[in-house]
Design a protein around this nucleic acid. Structure first.
Lengths: 216, 216
DNA sequence: ATATTTTAAATTATATATGATTTGATATAT
DNA sequence: ATATATCAAATCATATATAATTTAAAATAT
């Protein structure tokens, strides 16, 4: 049972405050204040903030201090657009590994997604939607690709918490599109068709957003 | 003219030592030694190493120290495979922005690539090849996507320096494939065709590598 | 001779103090 | 009243010292 170093404690604390939306974008992170709050000296705080800077969550201005990074709302859709390309690709490169078990699991998650929609459980919906998509690439053997996709899902989560804005879910359509995705996987349809469908599934949220923004 | 902080100096120093292959994978990075070498106290060294850890270049084991990260040779091809998907996508999403100037620039770079090959200038070839590919996505408006692709090219460069292994170039084929890419862009061929050609262009190196590895 | 334990050395992790820089408040000039 | 300069406060950045941990070497036991 290895005890976390102080630096690690500070990192986890600050990081979760950011990803949970408690620290808002633009908020100053004052090293002395954080040190007092956590009963640590400034050094482990500074190291933790350096790590968070490298992850893009925090922006450090030399000699001025650190703030929670500002997020341009475009970024959500840029990441989503990039994810659209990668996820489709990851799914088709692991299509030969698809199992009956995985198909069953996807069906199960999609049932839970539908239930979350019926219960007006937005957070549950978002969490399960991510699970569904990560399940589609479960057997992706390209570790770099898998990790990158995971990081992108995390990034989307973080932006949603940091940036109050409208995030389109298209829940009813998405749920039925999930069923289609499962079907495409189960029947091992041509790679192109699978890749394009998954890509369009994600890009549809961007179109939805643009439709709403231009009409208001 | 802003003077770099000591932390920044340490970061740049260590980072370039790694990316230039002077520090080899697995090499211990001893904080005191680096501090003496740079005439700095341990704190800015530690902060720099934290940043490098977050970039994956360095692996820190708590209380034991930092080493230059080990690279699994698979990673090169995993990153290249992921890049294949992303670059094709980035090119087709910015196809409408292609200019005569860009086409001319691509031709020019490819001429220089051919010259580097004739002069047995491996490093020049690698550098120009990267330039060529970054030029194909020059007008990509999705900043996240552009930055990600740039980072991946950097990653490939770093792995090549850190990991002594065979890296297939297929130089003559690659050069003529570049010409084909330029032609596809110039004539605004269908997105699918462009995307697939670029993807296959990159994946061909992986096939080449596998061919050579299984035959030896 | 080999295995285990103990000790010493090397290095990491962090506290505290101090120097450096930026920001904000106040005073002065126009 | 507004603009500029000066000063003070807040905070950052880092040096130095100390505590903590790991690793390697030496001593002891089998």
């Amino acid at each position: 049972m290895k005890k976390d170093s102080k630096q690690e404690i500070a990192y986890q604390f600050i990081r979760s405050r950011i990803t949970e939306g408690i620290y808002v974008q633009g908020q100053r992170l004052v090293i002395d204040t954080l040190g007092k709050e956590l009963n640590l000296s400034p050094i482990p705080i500074r190291e933790a903030i350096r790590r968070l800077e490298a992850e893009g969550l925090v922006t450090i201005k030399a000699y001025s201090g650190a703030v929670v990074s500002f997020i341009d709302e475009k970024e959500y859709f840029e990441v989503l657009s990039t994810l659209a390309a990668l996820e489709g690709y990851a799914v088709v490169t692991s299509i030969s590994q698809v199992t009956i078990e995985q198909i069953g699991e996807l069906h199960e998650i999609n049932l839970q997604i539908k239930e979350a929609l019926h219960q007006f459980n937005f957070n549950g919906y978002i969490k399960l939607n991510k699970e569904f998509h990560l399940c589609t690439i479960k057997y992706c053997t390209n570790k770099s690709l898998f990790n990158l996709i995971e990081q992108m899902w995390e990034k989307l989560d973080t932006i949603r918490r940091l940036k109050p804005m409208y995030f389109p879910t298209r829940a009813p359509e998405a749920i039925s599109e999930h069923e289609k995705i499962i079907s495409l996987l189960e029947t091992k349809q041509p790679s192109f068709e699978i890749e394009q469908f998954i890509r369009k599934h994600h890009l549809a949220a961007i179109h939805e957003y643009n439709k709403n923004v231009t009409s208001s």
